[in-house]
Write a protein that binds this DNA or RNA. Structure first.
Lengths: 341, 341
DNA sequence: CTGTTAGCGCCTTCAT
DNA sequence: ATGAAGGCGCTAACAG
């Protein structure tokens, strides 16, 4: 019954037991830190473990205890600081809860749903970011088999959601720009790309209504540099009449600003530009980018936490939890620059 | 023998077999895509699978096939674009190879070695970044139990290493700065923090020797904004005599530049500043940051690939593989600014 | 083409 | 405090 120590594949609980002259039950006990093992037996076992460089097989344990002790996390991609922060928060909280995290990126997968199924095969639950890159049907598909929590998305029956506040801060941001006297605001971003962008646009509209103005239709734009440059080109070419661009994230805003400058336009004098996320570059550029900071790391941590709660108990929170967000005023909106830069 | 469909925990291969009126072997076959199953049986099985929302248990499969089909990745943290890129490269290649990736961050763990052992418990091999945050003994600890490849580090007996080129490009970068007439260069970064920084400093020294100059001792500095600001303060206060700062990464360089500007110094006129990594901000700031670009994503992909090779065969590459790197000249070194900004 | 039957390595009652 | 034995869900011969 004993394994073959030293072989590829390594020692098993049997070889350890044999080497220590005890039964596998005892080995299991000391490994679990049970207190009902005599000190000397424990010692013998530990010695055997070291000598054999024994390393338990996670799969066997999982099979026996009937759970994986792992959280799945499904993200669209990983560019920019947003996802990284989220991931750090998630991993760190998961680790505290004794869970490992198996990560999966939608980017580059031709069949995300398939991949997600296979992910679900090896974790106790999965957290996923609501995004166009991730099929909307996914949560429903997994729901019933595994607990699911969606991040920056919306709750559905039996799938919990957490997000950071979008509408109100978008409204505040937009109102702020309006207060600078701008009247031809354009929202750059695609409300269809996910609930968060959609809500930001909703706030944009709400602020206009508050001011008895009517908001322009959104300008669907990808959240990347190239799209920003293209957008700026349209402005430079004169085929976009606007005096303030409300961009759905900072990368877009920064790319726009850069190209605008190259084209000889001044921000904010000719055109105000604001963004979302407060990435590092936002405070390094000149003028500083006015934006909204969200507690991304906390969002990740909360996701891990809620997921764990749903796994260990049937405990579900019905309303989607919303984390507060913060307006960061710099000078790209028209505010006076901070003398400290 | 049949499971209890509908219960928490879900259907098993037994319940599916029963529902489809076949044996578990047949179910297994259709799930593996075996071609020796009649079309109609296959259909019956698939139907049962759908109706029962069957989802195989990864752990059981792993136990049976005797491998996890998962790669472990151990990173110090995730801030900045470097790790994200690396991770994206790793995940995407791993996915192509049919491996999931379980990610683990050293940051925040009080006992990284312990955590790493537990990681090793559920993967077929682990890739880790060489860094001060990750115990140097780790590769050795795991070696023998699981294949290990270290990224940005050095090969040891039985642990493979891959890295991107450091010394030569650091040498080229330094030579370039010297060619601008600077003579009091200072290297900001801690050679003890990891093999990559150490090699960059080595290149710094080599360039000086080539010019029959003698290089100043390194100025151990953390690679973060706060440290950069502090460094700049020392310059502003006049207790650091230098006309060119060679920073070990871009974040540091950017923070230095920013604070220097706030303090009224001009870059590059008063002081040249160069960095490493070519982060996004590097091309957005004014002046543009001269830096070195490394193929980080490819590095991640290569790590996944080598790891997989070592897992599936005994195939080991002895010499550490080195990926080429590229000097990116902008104007923070003293070069004339690109009119296109 | 399909079913039977051993394990895979570990945990966990149940005895002792 | 320790051992014996069954079972977790799946794969893979081996028979038919």
């Amino acid at each position: 019954m004993a394994g073959i120590p030293g072989q590829r594949g390594g020692a098993t609980i049997y070889s350890v037991a044999e080497a220590a002259g005890v039964s596998i039950a005892t080995v299991s006990r000391v490994l679990q830190g049970s207190d009902k093992v005599s000190a000397k037996t424990r010692q013998r076992v530990m010695t055997a473990v070291e000598e054999l460089r024994y390393m338990p097989l996670g799969a066997a344990r999982s099979l026996a205890v009937r759970h994986h002790e792992a959280h799945g996390l499904l993200l669209p991609e990983l560019s920019g600081p947003y996802y990284s922060e989220l991931l750090m928060g998630f991993e760190s909280r998961a680790a505290e809860l004794g869970q490992s995290v198996v990560l999966m990126l939608a980017e580059g997968k031709d069949d995300v749903a398939r991949a997600a199924r296979s992910l679900a095969t090896r974790v106790d639950g999965v957290a996923m970011l609501a995004s166009a890159a991730i099929p909307d049907a996914l949560p429903e598909m997994l729901r019933g088999s595994k607990p699911v929590v969606v991040i920056a998305g919306e709750a559905k029956p039996d799938v919990e959601a957490i997000t950071s506040e979008n509408t109100a801060s978008a409204q505040a941001l937009t109102a702020h720009v309006l207060r600078h006297g701008r009247r031809r605001l354009v929202f750059a971003g695609d409300p269809a790309s996910g609930p968060d962008i959609r809500d930001r646009y909703a706030g944009f509209v709400a602020a206009h209504e508050d001011a008895h103005l009517t908001a322009a239709a959104p300008l669907p734009t990808e959240l990347r540099e190239s799209a920003g440059a293209a957008l700026a080109d349209r402005v430079l070419a004169g085929d976009l009449d606007t005096d303030a661009l409300v961009c759905a994230n900072d990368e877009l805003a920064l790319a726009v600003m850069k190209r605008l400058r190259q084209g000889g336009r001044s921000v904010p004098d000719d055109l105000a530009v604001v963004g979302w996320d407060d990435v590092m570059t936002a405070r390094y550029v000149e003028p500083g980018l006015t934006t909204v900071r969200q507690p991304v790391r906390e969002l990740g941590a909360l996701a891990a936490e809620r997921l764990h709660a749903r796994i260990t108990s049937a405990d579900t929170v019905d309303e989607t939890q919303v984390l507060p967000t913060q307006l960061v005023l710099r000078s790209s909106c028209g505010c006076a620059p901070d003398p400290l830069g």
